[in-house]
Design a protein around this nucleic acid. Sequence first.
DNA 1: GAAGATACGGAATATGCATTCCGTTTGTCA
DNA 2: TGACAAACGGAATGCATATTCCGTATCTTC
Lengths: 191, 191
Amino acid sequence: MTTAPLHDRPLRADARRNREAIITAAREIVAEEGAEAQIQDVARKAGVGVGTVYRHFPTKDALMGELMAACMRENAQIARDAARIADPWEAFAAVVRNGCESMAADAAKRRMWQVASDEAFAHAQDAKREMTEETLAVVRRAHAARVLRADFTGDDMPGLMCGLGAVIDQPGMSDWRRLVEFALDGVRART
Amino acid sequence: MTTAPLHDRPLRADARRNREAIITAAREIVAEEGAEAQIQDVARKAGVGVGTVYRHFPTKDALMGELMAACMRENAQIARDAARIADPWEAFAAVVRNGCESMAADAAKRRMWQVASDEAFAHAQDAKREMTEETLAVVRRAHAARVLRADFTGDDMPGLMCGLGAVIDQPGMSDWRRLVEFALDGVRART
DNA sequence: GAAGATACGGAATATGCATTCCGTTTGTCA
DNA sequence: TGACAAACGGAATGCATATTCCGTATCTTC
């Protein structure tokens, strides 16, 4: 179920180091290979044997779930940071722009959906909730200030970001920032 | 390489029928299963044995390529139909709206990218070119009439449509037409 | 620094799925 | 209607990849 130690004995030093290396490697492999990502490659890149990967994560889905959770926590942090911007529209725009910047900078963040089985998703449930809440706060503030179209709801955010992720992941798409601005224009309240 | 009869002898009646049934079944299976689509399931749904699938398509990629080609030809037709609309903006909007309608109506059309290996893509090359040309014509006319932002280029269309496809494919996304209108607002020239 | 618990590596195993093969069936044409 | 080519069905094969297993190596603790 969880990937933490079963009760509470602290991990041995080498184990802790390996666990980190595995997650990092998994992220790189997913970035490179997308849906074709293989445990064997993750192990090689982390400099450990496959057995070690399985010692830390009971299944591939559990590992991918951990990856998704990490990405979602990062997104939550992006939203938290944006929430500190005074102007409500700029705060909302920052969530979108910085979310896109992070997807552009890290292919794993836009490709993780390709490896997302239901199992993997379940592992990332909590992180997803966190992300949703932080994002929703920014959307609510933008609505209250009437700078975001009233008919764009918080539920639309995942769709918007996934759509932009697909745009950014487009082969040969270098100028995605322009399209992001079009999208922002599209959802901004008409003055 | 190709899926047509090797020389030019016409297909036997049952073979022609089966070929159609296989393509139809493949489309349904891809719609249901996405990347998990299996030849065995395609065969079952088509009411034939797997051997028959392989008699018509040398590999899975060839079958998927045929599917992609069919979808792209349909998109080309959507663009051709839209081109007959007198108003340049409405013509452009029709390409986007109807493209989205067709993706919403047929999950295979938005999921086919999940099964798109390079091999499969190669099979659909010609259809893709056709689609691109027809679409470009509508974009050019909109640009000439200055109703589409000058910095939205024909090369952005695949990104836009893929992005909207991702939006539509979002679980629980019923109200995607609203988001499509936001996107159209975003790329329309400011008056 | 020795004992015992933890963790490691990677060969072996298990499984799922594309593809092949060949004996059987069906359509076509005279 | 009979002969033959064309097509079919689906069990068997082969391969790729997740997962297990267990002998070995490494940490931790006293």
